[in-house]
Design a protein around this nucleic acid. Structure first.
Lengths: 207, 207
DNA sequence: AAATTTGTCCGTACATTTTTG
DNA sequence: GCAAAAATGTACGGACAAATT
């Protein structure tokens, strides 16, 4: 455990999160119990518990009495999470810093709940950073970008410049669907070009 | 303090939230300190603190060492929060329970960060419940409803059947803008009717 | 039935920040 | 300017209940 600054429960939370993201604990597997954590890190149950509860609120882990603390499973079937961002309008240019937190907030919710979202008015400059954050923190399973025609592959490259796990997932599917989604668009998005990254087809407007 | 079920810190949280919503504590004012709360409710500092920390995470209150716990101020200038819901599509009908939490999650973020959102595919049945939750918990400052033509005032009535503070805020503005927003719609929403509730004009597509 | 694990609740101690006398 | 008081921030440890294995 590194001795750098910050509260102990935060350092413990960060360390656990890092170990999960590195793959040391895979989705669905059990983390060490509170008691084990106390011995391993030399902290009290209160501190270990607090770190766990933080991760619970973030949706990273799930706890169950009598069982333990599990890395939250990634939903891979049925409906998957998607966040779509429209490259139109300029309302967001005035609130760039807010975007990241909001996007990750939405992503976390949709990741746990199998949902789909749409956000409008994202400027291209900000979006690059936010997409990177999304991919790095893996708060969404897929990213749908509806862009005005001035968007190209360079904007999607951010998804490839992340950790290996994300790259293998998104990049391959992205390239697979890149040309595929171009010709067939929804009626309401006639003037837009859609790039899709993910595992399930987008909702259709005409059932 | 009612003796009904549930953990003590949750009941305390609910009670504090209710008192805030009733206007007993106004935005910007200080809540009782931890010690005072312990005596008033007959709980330990741990429990009082936990209730406070829950409210902090929800953005309802803000704490500062040496000062106290303050009801989070409502942003009333510059950009305000809006959540817009489209009454189109059916994707959400399959995930009704998820909606509430997601909406409130977005609302909380936008309320703290002065943001604007758009969600599509909300079924009318679910939306009534979610709008009520939104208004009751005041997670957004405004609600923008873009509806297919089958929506009427009955759907907006939910905003009036809430606590007095919300009613006076939303109902008046709603009625004021009800007819006003009807004739002029955005080009992309030609087939939709917009009802707006809030304090600032919606973003324009043509600057 | 026993052991393990988390959920709730309690009390304490000290540090940090802010206000006040 | 400084010391005391008040409030929150962090951390510890323990007790018992509930759920699961």
């Amino acid at each position: 455990m590194k001795q750098s600054g910050g509260p102990m429960y935060q350092r413990l939370r960060q360390d656990l999160l890092a170990r999960i993201r590195r793959g040391e604990f895979t989705p669905g597997s059990l983390l060490p119990s509170e008691n084990q954590l106390c011995k391993q890190y030399g902290v009290s149950v209160t501190t270990a518990r607090r770190a766990f509860l933080e991760l619970v609120k973030e949706g990273v882990v799930q706890r169950k009495a009598g069982v333990g603390t599990m890395v939250a499973p990634i939903v891979r079937h049925a409906r998957l999470s998607f966040l779509s961002i429209d490259y139109e309008g300029d309302a967001w240019r005035r609130t760039p810093s807010a975007m990241g937190e909001i996007v990750s907030g939405i992503g976390a919710a949709s990741w746990q709940r199998d949902a789909s979202f749409s956000m409008t008015g994202v400027g291209s400059d900000e979006a690059v950073g936010y997409l990177r954050r999304l991919a790095e923190e893996r708060t969404v399973d897929g990213v749908l970008i509806r862009a005005a025609d001035d968007i190209g592959e360079k904007h999607l490259k951010v998804l490839e410049n992340t950790r290996p796990g994300v790259r293998s997932t998104t990049a391959s599917l992205m390239s697979a669907r890149f040309r595929e989604t171009r010709p067939r668009r929804r009626a309401r998005l006639r003037s837009l070009t859609s790039y899709r990254v993910g595992h399930v087809p987008m909702q259709s407007t005409r059932p």
